[in-house]
Nucleic acid binder design. Structure first.
Length: 183
DNA sequence: CGGCTGATGATCT
DNA sequence: GATCATCAGCCGG
């Protein structure tokens, strides 16, 4: 999906009661219409309805009883698809992110979808928000030019595991996954 | 470094 | 009752 590639380098900004945090998106995964690994595959339900909103809305879900993950809805109204935001390069509110994550290395603050959500204090209360206009969570322009963007298989899924729908900024230390999928 | 595992709960069948 | 787009911690090499 073109959106997944387009989002690399853009800012994700979060305004929460305890302050602002933001970072450059360095890793995404597309979950396209008809994709058996996508949460929209089973059709619209109470949980995944945000994936069926017009492109640019947040879909936030709770996984493994432990973590939240954030998607950007990617299609026209009624069509379920999204882009998982897998990693950020922290830019604003780095100390705030550290406090939320429990004092870790900067490269681990938002490296992976669960860590990203924790660093940005994202949970189901942001589900369905319009990311294209300023609010508790939104997308901003790229602070600088992105590096080379590469493609790979997606991480952590079982179905449709061969499809090259993961996008990342090559060589960034803020990208998740095994070394072979970060180079 | 790589590999394994327990944690923990919403969701859907 | 099974599944799950994960992570931290612990182990061995």
């Amino acid at each position: 999906m073109a959106l997944a590639r387009y989002l690399i380098g853009k800012m994700l900004v979060r305004d929460a009661p305890d302050g602002r945090a933001g970072g450059r998106i360095v890793e995404t995964e597309a979950y396209v219409p008809g994709d058996a690994s996508g949460h929209a595959y089973i059709g619209e339900t109470a949980r995944n309805r945000s994936l069926f909103l017009r492109r640019g809305h947040a879909y936030v879900y709770f996984i493994y009883g432990v973590h939240f993950c954030v998607n950007v809805s990617g299609e026209t109204p009624g069509v379920g698809a999204g882009v998982l935001l897998r990693a950020l390069e922290p830019v604003d509110g780095i100390e705030l992110m550290r406090a939320r994550r429990g004092m870790r290395r900067e490269t681990d603050l938002a490296r992976g979808p669960g860590r990203l959500a924790q660093a940005m204090a994202i949970d189901r209360s942001q589900d369905g928000v319009d990311l294209c206009s300023r609010g508790p969570l939104w997308l901003g322009s790229a602070p600088r030019e992105e590096g080379r963007i590469k493609t790979s298989v997606r991480i952590g899924i079982r179905k449709e595991a061969h499809r090259p729908l993961r996008f990342y900024e090559a060589g960034s230390p803020y990208v998740s996954g095994p070394p072979a999928l970060r180079a």
